[in-house]
Design a protein around this nucleic acid. Structure first.
Length: 439
RNA sequence: GUGGCUGUAGCUCAGUCGGUAGAGUCCCGGAUUGUGAUUCCGGUUGUCGCGGGUUCGAGCCCCGUCAGCCACCCCA
């Protein structure tokens, strides 16, 4: 923590094993679940040309204007560390022509970068799981994607509330936008300073301002939902009936808008009040115009992204214990003379799929401490006596299991205590340290 | 980017009026112990976040800076 010592870049975190176990468990759960819905992983570059994001996200958004990590590479090309995944995903699909004659379902998982002021649940390098579906315009696809998002949260063991809205077609939205401006202009003086600025850049965002006077004005503003084009209205109605059929509770929030410009029609968010100001844990929507906008064929699309840090923080708060892998056996050598033998036995057990941590040489007291700290399920200590043929004691560290026998028959002892050979899956234990590390 | 709070041992925290670095816990070594015990002895617990200033003297006062947290903002 010394000021001059090397330290991580602000807002970028190291994830140590106590915490990464929770990440791995979550990631693996998510992958299993995505496969269940037929989604395939698309691994994308972290760097894209700056132009892509300016084009896709909208160059008046905060993300593009003030939050991107943009730099010139050695050729002088302007590159940007991806601040979100949709743009790159669309670019890849267009480039590979993977949408021609297909309706691919993709997901991606990994770090995103935004130069924001760090806070809990908001980091400069953060991680998202994103999902994108191309070529399917029907409301049933919206329902599928929302059902998937619901299952992601359920699988993670967290609860949040679903809010949905429809932004309508681009034309309807543009029309509504000018209506809204007509409504807002006479009241401009009553709006907060931020909203006076928002009016010019993105008037829809005035609708979800937190300032009470702005909220009052927003409440009385014309509803976007009342001014949808006919097709979008039907689409939205059908989506709602499908959500009801799928037993997914939701709330229509007329003031729900998205910060990114590419959304149209359905937008949705899973929100919680447990994470302070960072209450949106998962959000997405339809973006039927983006593929064409980026140079592809006219292709409807929908997707969402989950903030993994936020998901994990919610898990920690809502008490889902994260399980961390532990070794099966701790093998300790008391004296120098026993070290070679101990390590040999450890290697042989590993050959059979048994995870072993070896320790020593050390005093008896310290070897016991090492055994405890390893959190291994079993422990056995090898001293001069055992080398000379005395019985070895194999015992369960957290339980009553106990076996005595010859050093060379250790695997039989493990077998007696209920361990199968080979051991296909890692053993797990509740690791409360993980929860602490996240909270 | 704006505002506020915080930063002392590995961890949790004291530190009075500016006068030579503290507690608990943990850790390390040793003795006894012979299956996580007990007891005893000994040890590090430290650029007081970092840099500068004021002062005979700064953990304490002033300025700057870095980091964390909270709110705004933004967003997942």
């Amino acid at each position: 923590m010394a000021g001059k010592a090397l330290q991580a870049v602000r807002g970028m975190n190291d994830i140590f094993p106590e915490a990464s176990a929770g990440w791995q468990a979550l990631e693996s759960d998510l992958r299993t679940l995505l496969a269940l819905y037929g989604y395939g992983e698309l691994r994308l570059p972290l760097l894209e040309s700056t132009e892509l994001f300016a084009h896709a996200i909208g160059d008046v958004t905060d993300i593009v204007q003030k939050e991107m990590y943009t730099f010139a590479d050695r050729n002088g090309d302007s590159l940007t560390l991806r601040p979100e995944g949709t743009a790159g995903c669309v670019r890849a699909a267009i480039q590979a022509q993977s949408m021609r004659g297909h309706t691919p379902r993709y997901y991606y998982m990994g770090p995103m970068f935004r130069h924001e002021r760090p806070q809990k649940g908001r980091y400069r390098q953060f991680h998202q799981l994103g999902v994108e579906v191309f070529g399917l315009p029907a409301a049933s696809t919206d329902a599928e994607v929302i059902a998937l998002s619901a299952r992601i949260l359920r699988t993670a063991g967290v609860t949040a509330a679903l809010q949905i809205n429809s932004l309508g077609s681009p034309a309807a939205r543009a029309h509504y936008r000018s209506m809204l401006l007509d409504y807002l202009r006479p009241r401009r003086a009553e709006l907060c300073a931020d909203c006076q600025e928002r009016m010019e850049r993105n008037p829809l965002r005035v609708l979800d301002c937190k300032v009470p006077t702005c909220q009052d004005i927003a409440h009385m503003a014309p509803h976007l939902a009342d001014h949808l084009d006919e097709d979008s209205a039907a689409h939205f109605a059908l989506l709602q009936s499908l959500l009801t059929a799928l037993d997914i509770p939701y709330q229509v929030n007329h003031r729900l808008v998205r910060g990114l410009d590419y959304y149209s029609r359905t937008v949705f968010e899973w929100v919680t009040d447990a994470l302070g100001a960072q209450g949106t844990v998962l959000a997405g929507g339809r973006y039927d115009g983006l593929v064409a906008q980026l140079g592809g064929a006219e292709t409807p699309a929908i997707g969402f992204a989950v903030g993994l840090e936020r998901l994990l923080a919610l898990q920690a708060l809502q008490g889902r214990a994260v399980e961390a892998p532990i070794p099966l056996l701790f093998l300790g050598a008391l004296e120098n003379a026993g070290v070679a033998r101990t390590w040999q036995i450890a290697e042989k057990l590993r050959d059979r799929g048994i995870s072993v941590v070896a320790g020593g040489p050390a005093t008896f007291k310290n070897i016991m401490k090492q055994a405890e700290r390893s959190h291994a399920r079993f422990q056995a200590i090898i001293g001069a006596g055992q080398l000379a043929g005395e019985a070895l004691i194999l015992k369960e560290q957290a339980g009553e299991g106990r076996w005595q026998g010859n050093l060379d028959a250790l695997h039989e002892g493990l077998h007696c205590l209920g361990v199968d050979f080979p051991q296909p899956a890692p053993h797990t234990v509740r690791n409360f340290a993980t929860v602490r590390a996240l909270s």
